[in-house]
Simulated assay, not measured.
Amino acid sequence: MYRRIATLAIAAAAIGALMPAFSAEDYPAKPIRIVVPYSAGGGVDNITRVVATQLGARLKQSVIVDNRPGANANIGADYVAKAPADGYTLLMGATFLAFNRATMKTIPYDASKDLIPVARTGKAPFVLVVPATSPFKTVAELVAYMKANPDQASYGAVGAGSPTNLIFPKNTGTDPVQILYKGGATALPDLIAGRLTYMIQTTSEVLPHIGTGKLRALAVTGTVRFKHLPDVPTMKEAGVGGLEGTGWWGLFVPAKTPAAIVDRLSEETQRVMKQPEVIAALDKLGIESAPQPAAEFQPFFQSELKSYVEVARQFNLTTE
């Protein structure tokens, strides 16, 4: 009996010695899935589809976009966090990862431990917009209306909202009704139709509607004006402080994914984000290609996690 076990062990060891060690060159051997934790047509979805097409071409493998909205993006993020750590299930993450972790009492995963930042892809400011039919031409006019009509003012938010959506009412002394949606694409028709007073949304979702005259931009977040809307003031210029932050997007994989796979994905994503056609495609969406390799994106993400905890504490931001 013992002799048989010893023989099997030796045979297994011999087979293992003959098998080649894992190499990033062996990856990928099957299609890759990038999970978008929001509905199709939103800001996260828009950048993902641009990246997926070009990343698939570089990896010579299909890269599929998988929309899994719900629970303020936690359904999709948790799905990836618990997926096999083999490099075939990725998450297009964004500021929601830091915001959810800082403000939600219960969350099924820990973004700081269960996900590995692979590569940042882009960044852009948020835009405060109102329907084109709205009488408001400035932030001051909008704020004055909301103070005078607290029961009639409302805004659309994706999931449970974001720091921008929550800080804006706090710093303007207003209390508009928050209407929740699974994605920006489902909220914008209500805004355009005048069923919402305003929204603060990513550039890629609102720029097309600003361009066609369906929405009016009143202000942008960040420290400088947005190049696509040079006549639109920053929030600070419009009299609202505390909204200097901008949005970002990046790829993540489950914890314990082999370093060779993380490095391969990071390197190829960097190359994708530097391609002229990708830069141009994102620019049309109002997104700046802002690649960061894993070595830089990981500390950036950790700093974002800490920053959002501080913002949540400072403004007492909590979500259900």
Rank of each mutant, 00 (worst) to 15 (best):
P131A: 10
P131Y: 06
A132H: 07
T133L: 10
S134Y: 04
S134C: 10
F136M: 13
K137A: 15
A140D: 14
A140R: 12
L142F: 07
V143L: 09
V143F: 06
A144E: 11
A144C: 08
M146H: 03
N149E: 12
S154Q: 01
Y155A: 01
Y155V: 01
G156K: 01
G156C: 10
A157K: 02
A157D: 03
A160H: 12
P163A: 14
P163G: 09
P163D: 07
N165D: 15
N165H: 12
N165Q: 13
I167A: 04
I167S: 00
T172N: 03
T174C: 09
Q178K: 11
K182D: 15
A185N: 08
T186A: 13
A187V: 00
D190P: 05
L191V: 02
L191K: 01
Y198I: 01
Y198G: 01
M199G: 00
I200N: 05
I200M: 15
Q201G: 07
T203K: 04
T203G: 01
T203W: 02
L207V: 09
L207M: 13
P208F: 02
P208H: 00
I210G: 02
G211A: 15
G211C: 13
T212D: 15
G213L: 12
G213Q: 11
K214M: 06
L215T: 04
V220S: 08
T221M: 06
G222T: 07
F226N: 10
F226T: 05
H228R: 13
P230M: 03
P230Y: 03
D231Y: 04
V232Y: 00
P233N: 13
K236T: 15
G241I: 12
G241K: 14
L243W: 09
L243A: 11
G245S: 15
T246L: 14
W248P: 08
G250D: 06
F252P: 05
